[in-house]
C-alpha cells in the first residue's frame, strides 16, 4: 500500500497533513511517499494520492507542475485509484479559478467544477453533512466559492453549513474513488465513518482505525454539539 503525498511542504495549511499521519497510524505497513514541488510525482496508481490546501500562488505552481501529468491523473481517476483532495486542492483539478480582476487560472480540467476567488472576503463556517448514512463534521475557511458543472456528483449532502457555494445542496465532489472536499484540516481523525470509506476505496476494507473508540467518542460529542448549537 502506497500513500503518495503531493507537495506536503506547501500543501498543508490547516493541520491537513495529519490526514496522512492518521492513515499511517491505521496502516502501519503502508509506504508514504512525499513528493516535493521540486521533484516529479510518481502516480503509480496503488493506494492513495493526497493533495491538501495551499496558498493562491502555490496553486498556480502546482497546476503548472501537474499539467504534464494530466492524462495520467485522468487514467488513474478512471481506473478507480483513490484520491483525497482537501481544501482548495479541488480547484487544481477543476476547470478554472476566476480571480477578482476577471482573469482566469486554468486548472487541469479533470473535475467538473470552477471557483471564484475573493481575497478580501474570507469565508468561515462549520459544516455538518450526510455521508453514506452517517454524518460528517468539518470546518471551512477559504477565499473561494465553487460551482459544479455538468456531470458533477456531490460528496456530502449539506445538513448544516454551506456546500460548494451558498446555494449548492452538497459539499465536495466525488468521481469514482476520488474524494474532494473543501472541509479543511484533519477530516479523517475527526470523522471515523469517512476514514473507513476512504480506507475501503484504497483497498483496505475493514481496517481498525487508530484509537477507533476514542475517535468515535470525540466524533459523537462533536456531532451532538453541532446539533445543539449550530442552526
Amino acid at each position: 500500500m502506497r500513500i503518495e503525498v503531493l507537495f506536503p511542504e506547501y500543501c498543508s495549511l490547516f493541520g491537513d497533513l495529519f490526514n496522512v499521519k492518521y492513515l499511517q497510524d491505521c496502516l502501519p505497513e503502508a509506504e508514504r511517499i512525499d513528493v516535493s514541488l521540486r521533484d516529479e510525482p510518481e502516480l503509480k496508481g496503488e493506494g492513495l494520492v493526497y493533495l491538501g490546501p495551499m496558498s493562491e500562488r502555490t496553486q498556480e505552481r502546482v497546476i503548472k507542475k501537474l499539467m504534464p501529468y494530466r492524462d495520467r491523473i485522468r487514467e488513474l481517476i478512471d481506473s478507480g485509484t483513490a484520491f483525497l483532495l482537501t481544501g482548495n486542492a479541488m480547484e487544481v483539478l477543476g476547470s478554472y479559478i476566476q480571480c477578482e480582476d476577471g482573469s482566469r487560472i486554468e486548472g487541469l480540467g479533470l473535475l467538473p467544477v470552477y471557483a471564484k476567488r475573493k481575497m478580501m472576503r474570507r469565508h468561515n463556517s462549520v459544516f455538518l453533512g450526510d455521508w453514506n448514512g452517517g454524518e460528517v463534521t468539518g470546518f471551512k475557511s477559504q477565499f473561494t466559492m465553487a460551482w459544479p458543472m455538468e456531470g458533477a456528483k456531490g460528496l456530502f449532502t449539506v445538513k448544516k453549513g454551506v456546500g460548494l457555494n451558498k446555494k449548492c445542496p452538497y459539499e465536495g465532489l466525488r468521481v469514482n474513488n476520488l474524494f474532494a472536499t473543501y472541509l479543511q484540516g484533519p477530516i479523517l481523525p475527526l470523522n471515523p465513518c469517512f476514514a473507513k470509506s476512504l480506507l475501503e476505496a484504497m483497498g483496505a476494507p475493514g481496517v481498525k482505525l487508530a484509537f477507533e473508540e476514542e475517535a468515535v467518542e470525540a466524533y459523537r460529542a462533536r456531532t451532538a454539539d453541532f446539533h445543539a448549537k449550530v442552526r
Binding site: F14, G15, F139, G185, F226
Partner: peptide, 12 residues
C-alpha cells in the same frame, strides 16, 4: 458558547 470551534489547529 455559540458554535463548534474549528479545531483543525490542534493538528498543527
Amino acid at each position: 458558547q455559540h458554535t463548534v470551534e474549528n479545531i483543525s489547529w490542534l493538528y498543527d
